[in-house]
Design a protein around this nucleic acid. Structure first.
Length: 113
DNA sequence: CCAGTGACGGCTA
DNA sequence: TTAGCCGCCACTG
């Protein structure tokens, strides 16, 4: 996807944060964007994940929107892939929604540094 | 170059 | 309280 120098830094940063997400935990796009400094640009985080999907192997299934809904499941290899992977991590998902999302929520700005 | 879109989030009615 | 609109940033057509 025509990686350009400079902006790619933002992408790499997203990948690193996502990779640091502990198993059984989930985070939101806004939290990552805020941690990167581009708070408000949560969309860019999602875009970065799309771009990284087939190229960079990262637990993108641990990233959901601020409601805990698996909005991006449609972008996975299969729609159920995201939910299955989450259940594999021990995260309960019902109706495309993470159960106890608030408890499983992992904030990089707080937990990470 | 201009307009539309998109794994979102926060604010206002 | 719930529903809808606008805003941020990058990419495609």
């Amino acid at each position: 996807m025509t990686e350009k120098p400079g902006k790619r830094n933002f992408f790499e940063d997203v990948y690193e944060v996502v990779r640091l997400i502990p198993k059984g935990r989930v985070t939101s796009y806004g939290a990552i964007a805020s941690y990167l400094g581009s708070k408000g640009s949560a969309r860019m985080v999602g875009w970065a994940l799309i771009a990284s999907h087939p190229f960079t192997k990262i637990p993108a299934h641990r990233v959901v929107n601020r409601v805990g809904m698996l909005t991006g499941k449609q972008h996975f290899e299969e729609m159920d892939t995201m939910q299955e992977r989450l259940e594999q991590d021990g995260v309960q998902v019902v109706n495309n929604q993470v159960v106890n999302f608030k408890e499983l929520f992992w904030d990089p700005a707080k937990e990470l540094f």
